[in-house]
Amino acid sequence: MSTEKFEDRKARIVLQQCLSARLQVQPKSDTEEAQFVEIGRGLIVYICFLKGSTSDTVSKMVKAALNTRLSANDEGKLVSILELPGDVLIVPQATLGGTLKGKLMQYHKNIDKEEGKKLYDEFVQSCNDIVKQNNPNVSVQSGTYGNRQVFRTDTNGPYTHMIEF
Rank of each mutant, 00 (worst) to 15 (best):
M1Q: 08
E4K: 06
K5R: 02
F6N: 01
E7M: 02
D8G: 14
A21V: 02
L23R: 12
P27N: 01
E38Y: 11
I39D: 08
I39A: 06
G40V: 00
G40I: 02
Y46H: 14
K51F: 06
K60N: 15
V62G: 04
V62W: 07
S71W: 11
D74H: 10
D74K: 15
E75Q: 07
E75V: 01
G76E: 01
G76T: 07
S80A: 07
L82M: 14
P85S: 15
G86I: 04
G86L: 08
D87I: 05
L96G: 04
G98V: 03
L100P: 04
G102W: 01
M105V: 06
Q106L: 11
N110M: 05
E114F: 10
E115L: 05
K118S: 15
K118D: 03
L119K: 04
L119T: 05
F123G: 03
V124K: 10
V124A: 13
D129I: 10
K132N: 10
K132L: 03
Q133D: 13
Q133S: 03
N134T: 14
N137G: 10
S142L: 01
R148N: 08
Q149S: 14
D154F: 11
Y159G: 14
Y159L: 08
T160M: 15
T160C: 07
H161E: 12
I163M: 10
E164W: 03
E164T: 07
F165K: 00
